[in-house]
Design a protein around this nucleic acid. Structure first.
Length: 304
DNA sequence: GACAATGTTACAGT
DNA sequence: CACTGTAACATTGT
């Protein structure tokens, strides 16, 4: 799942490889019969507009806002991409190749193996260096739209987002004050609530709570300042570790070159149900419960 | 075939 | 209105 670290790695890659390239064509096979926003490329009419706005423009750079990728173009336009659950961007000439080669997402189906190309590619930008930027998205949840740079501040796609957790000025005090806006929420749910703090999802929330020794089921108002401080530190640690280890590829996230990250090897809680807790001196077993319709993993021995 | 995986949002309910 | 909880979206693997 692309959360803050994975999106950051994708953005870093875009800045490394794509600056100065021109978009020469766009193709998509996204379409949806349901609830398509009028400014989503899944809407065929909007896609025609989208194409007109971006083909022929040069890529200036990319940045991350919460879990969104924003690609800035030469005419004051930007492309906003939210990869949702299974989306990831790939860059190069291999992007159409068999998904078991450069894009070996876990559990690739026999059908995909027999296909001659990666059948999860939903969107392709052709670039002036004869390479491609493609979006692979098994579950077709991703959102792609065009926004003018001057409208970014007020766009509905970004307006409800809380502050960035890795920002210099995101202090322990700020962390506490954002979360306590929802005193009755379970802490796990508050942590993944994007309007409170942006960028944390299911994996990093479980991991930071394990490290901060706080039970995910605790109500925000029951948490003491010392525990907030521990969570704050753990949050910074796991998000930075996520970036340092190239992201989390337990599911199908890949970097721009189709390579897996390895933060999944550092998991202490997420998807470790039934395993012995790896905290020193703790003999607990990792348990699983559902919070806010999301799988939650924790050790009820050392997390209090 | 039932169920699990999840980021975001629409909507019902309190 | 503010907040909370739940279903929906989509697809594939077990």
């Amino acid at each position: 799942m692309p959360e803050l670290p994975e999106v950051q790695i994708t953005v870093n890659g875009l800045n490394n490889y794509l600056k100065g390239l021109k978009i020469t064509a766009v193709w998509t096979n996204y379409n949806s019969a349901y609830h398509i926003g009028k400014d989503n490329i899944k809407n065929p009419k909007y896609f025609e507009y989208f194409k007109k706005e971006i083909v022929g423009k040069k890529i200036i750079g990319a940045r991350r806002v919460a879990k969104n990728v924003i690609i800035t173009l030469s005419n004051g336009s930007t492309i906003l991409i939210h990869m949702k659950m299974t989306g990831h961007l790939l860059y190069g000439n291999y992007v159409f190749e068999k998904s078991d080669k450069k894009d070996p997402w876990k559990g690739v189906s026999p059908k995909a193996l027999t296909d001659s190309f990666n059948r999860h590619i939903r969107l392709v930008f052709s670039l002036s260096n004869k390479k491609y930027l493609a979006l692979s998205d098994v579950r077709r949840f991703a959102k792609i739209t065009h926004i003018r740079e001057k409208d970014i501040e007020k766009t509905t796609h970004l307006e409800k987002l809380g502050p960035e957790p890795l920002a210099e000025n995101f202090t322990n005090e700020k962390f506490l004050s954002r979360l306590t806006l929802r005193p009755n929420m379970k802490i796990k749910q508050a942590l993944i609530e994007q309007s409170l703090i942006s960028g944390i999802g299911n994996i990093y929330s479980d991991e930071l709570l394990w490290r901060a020794d706080v039970l995910p089921t605790r109500k925000v108002k029951s948490i003491r300042p010392a525990e907030f401080k521990k969570m704050y530190k753990a949050m910074k640690t796991v998000l930075k570790a996520g970036i340092d280890f190239g992201g989390d590829s337990m599911s199908d996230y890949r970097n721009l070159l189709g390579e897996r990250g390895c933060f999944q090897e550092k998991h202490r809680a997420y998807r470790k149900t039934g395993e012995k807790c790896s905290k020193k001196g703790c003999n607990g077993i990792i348990l699983r419960t559902i919070i806010g319709a999301r799988s939650t993993h924790f050790c009820n021995k050392h997390q209090k």
